[in-house]
Design a protein around this nucleic acid. Structure first.
Ligand code: MN
Ligand code: MN
Ligand code: ZN
Ligand code: ZN
Lengths: 125, 125
DNA sequence: AATGAAAGTAGTAATGATTACTACTTAAGG
DNA sequence: CCTTAAGTAGTAATCATTACTACTTTCATT
C-alpha cells in the first residue's frame, strides 16, 4: 500500500473518533485539513483500511455504514431509542456463543452481530 | 384498510413463502397473477402489511429488506457463508436477555437482533 | 537525479433499492 | 347511484455508495 497524505489523515480521523462516524462525517472533518479531497477518496480509503483490518466497518440498522477504531475487545449494541451505537466489552457476550452452540449447533460471530435494544440511559426515562 | 386485489395477492404470496423473499421476488411472483401490477404497489403494500403487524419486515446485513410470515416464536440468524436467513425457535435465546440485562443493564430485543454466524450445514464442509 | 509503472486522486457519472409524486381508478357506506 | 377516501400504475426522485476517467504522485530501479 503506497503512502498518501489523504489516507493518512483519514486514518488518523477515524482513530481519534469515539462516536462511530459515517463516511460523510469523516469527510467533513478531513476537509478542514485537505479542502479539495473527494468524497469518493474517503470512501475508497475507508474501505481499503477496513479490508486491511486496520479499522472496523460496521453496518447500521438502516444499512448505512459507520467506521470505528479496531478494538477487538468491544462489541456493538444499537439503541432503538437514542439511535446510537454503544460499545460493550465482549466478555459480556462470551457465554452466548456456547449457549447457542450447545442448543442449536450454530456458531454466532459476536463481532458481526449487532445487538439491538434499549440502552440503560433510555430505560431511565 | 380498503380491500384491493393487489394487496390480497401480495399477502398470500408472503404467507406461502418460506424463504424470506425480497420485494422484487414477491413482485415477480405476483406478476404472474396480475401482470401489470406496479413494483411501487408491492412496496407500498408490503410496508403497510408490516406496519399493521400482519407480516414481518426484516433487515438484511446489506441493508435490504426481506419479508416473512408473522410467527413470533421464531428468531432470525444470518449465515455469512450460505447467505441465507435461518429461523430459530426463540426459546433458544430466552436466557440471553437475562444474561445481558444482569451483566450490563441493557435490554436486548431478540426479535430485532439479527444474529450472524455460520449455520450447521456450512460448518460440516 | 531521471525514469516509468503501479497506485492514488479529484471530479463526475452511474447504481440500485426504496420512496414520492401525479393523474386516474376503485371500494364501500349512506 | 353518489361521494369520497383509499388504492393503483407509471414514472421521477432520493440517497448512500461505487464505478469511471483523465490526471498526479509515490517509490523502486537505473
Ligand atoms: Mn465501537
Ligand atoms: Mn423467518
Ligand atoms: Zn439509548
Ligand atoms: Zn450456512
Amino acid at each position: 500500500m503506497k503512502y498518501s497524505k489523504q489516507r493518512d489523515v483519514i486514518l488518523n480521523t477515524v482513530l481519534s473518533s469515539y462516536n462511530h462516524p459515517t463516511a460523510e462525517e469523516i469527510y467533513e472533518i478531513v476537509r478542514k485539513e485537505i479542502p479539495n479531497i473527494s468524497l469518493g477518496t474517503v470512501y475508497r480509503n475507508l474501505n481499503k483500511l477496513a479490508e486491511a483490518g486496520i479499522i472496523k466497518k460496521i453496518q447500521m440498522s438502516n444499512g448505512n455504514f459507520r467506521f470505528d477504531r479496531q478494538e477487538d475487545t468491544y462489541n456493538h449494541f444499537y439503541c432503538k431509542q437514542c439511535d446510537q451505537i454503544h460499545d460493550i466489552p465482549s466478555s459480556n457476550f462470551k457465554d452466548i456463543n456456547t449457549i447457542i452452540k450447545d442448543k442449536i449447533g450454530y456458531e454466532i460471530d459476536i463481532f458481526d452481530t449487532m445487538f439491538v435494544g434499549i440502552c440503560k440511559n433510555c430505560q431511565n426515562k
